[in-house]
Design a protein around this nucleic acid. Sequence first.
DNA 1: CGGGGGTTTGATACTAATCAATAGATGTGG
DNA 2: CCACATCTATTGATTAGTATCAAACCCCCG
Lengths: 241, 241
Amino acid sequence: MRMTSAAAGESRREPCAYCQARPHSLCSAVPDDALSMLATLAVVRDYAKGQVFIEQGAAAEDFFNVTSGTVKLYKLLPDGRQQITGFAGTGHFLGLAVTDTYTFSVQAIEPVRACRFSRSRLRRLMDDCPQVEERLLRTACQELIAAQEQILLLGRKSAQERLATFLLGWSRQADPRAPPAERVRLPMTRGDIADHLGLTIETVSRTFSRFRADGRIRTPSSHEVVITDRPYLERLAAGAV
Amino acid sequence: MRMTSAAAGESRREPCAYCQARPHSLCSAVPDDALSMLATLAVVRDYAKGQVFIEQGAAAEDFFNVTSGTVKLYKLLPDGRQQITGFAGTGHFLGLAVTDTYTFSVQAIEPVRACRFSRSRLRRLMDDCPQVEERLLRTACQELIAAQEQILLLGRKSAQERLATFLLGWSRQADPRAPPAERVRLPMTRGDIADHLGLTIETVSRTFSRFRADGRIRTPSSHEVVITDRPYLERLAAGAV
DNA sequence: CGGGGGTTTGATACTAATCAATAGATGTGG
DNA sequence: CCACATCTATTGATTAGTATCAAACCCCCG
């Protein structure tokens, strides 16, 4: 109890210094001696599961940095078809692909905490810390690489190859440098996976069942997957014959 | 005759000042008084139709700026499946989505001229002209938006919607600010279009024929399209019911 | 003028979508 | 804490859209 309130007290004074998301985020480009400034630029906000906090077409006033939880980024067609362009977790910056209006929507798929910056404040941060601009450029290039990988997946891979690629990617998600985890937590629904992989719920579900029956994975619960035949999934994901 | 050789002479001394691609390219971020430096950083090179000058997986030593002609950017799967992530014409910068190796290949689909920069020289240019870095960031964000649009297309649009989107996009290609052209030149083959839209040659060809039969387009030659029912194609491309 | 890549069209096959029903998980209020 | 309502997931039967296989045609280039 005392610890908790003490930590909360600390975090009110120097929240960014203790932020567990900082090492993974844009904010790591801000030098320690500028951290107090960083804290004054951002507003911490919580979003409930299901809440939409960026809406495609709205004026792009704010940028966000996810500090905990997971969101989905998606685009909609007028008749309701949805395409999820990606999921974003701790440390992920939201607002690169932005003109004067947002070109995508963002919804929390589990409880989310995020730091909100106004456009002008981010500009100020970039002016004061050139490292931030450089970091943003590197981030944008990485996202571009990921987007092109997704384009390959959607354009040329089969349903099985798509799901294998997705599961392996998610098993590296936690820490790209660490050895990939065999136990993967999937915070999203089958429907979200389908809308990410350009498939339907039924096809995703059937492909899970197929992998399970063939001994490639186990599914202790519908949101947990254990990879039991990684080499096979790797071959599938790579598109090897 | 005299004009031509005079221009060629000029361009040897101050090539960048007279480059017709500069207004559309990264190089417009370089101030006039630094242009002579720019010219010493770049090497102009010509590539024949069909020539591959960036190969996926190779060490990323160089960046390019296309000054004339058209290239395709693509990724390959081991069994030969190809996905074209985009086409690039005059003014387009190649090398954003790059780690230490190229993550895609680039092939000239018609005769191409391009300026080649080494990685270290681009770094020097960025250090000397902060505007260049800013410009690169904006370019990267634009490409990211385009990539996400392509993800939506591949994940959720029908063959007809894909081709309509492609034709309309290409009709705005020449000059995004000008009124879109009704007559569109397509330098790529049906196979290239198929590999860009996640379809087969046959489906692309059939969809062209369908549009033609329905009076949406005319095709004076297989590489020229005249849009005769833009509103219909707009509705299709937007995914309207 | 001949050859070969590129394009079109037709017949058939197959993957994934759609329609439908049941079962399981999650969350809420009594 | 349990019962119910709702959302999510699975499985089956059928269909639709696009891929594949095949053949003819066109046109561009040498």
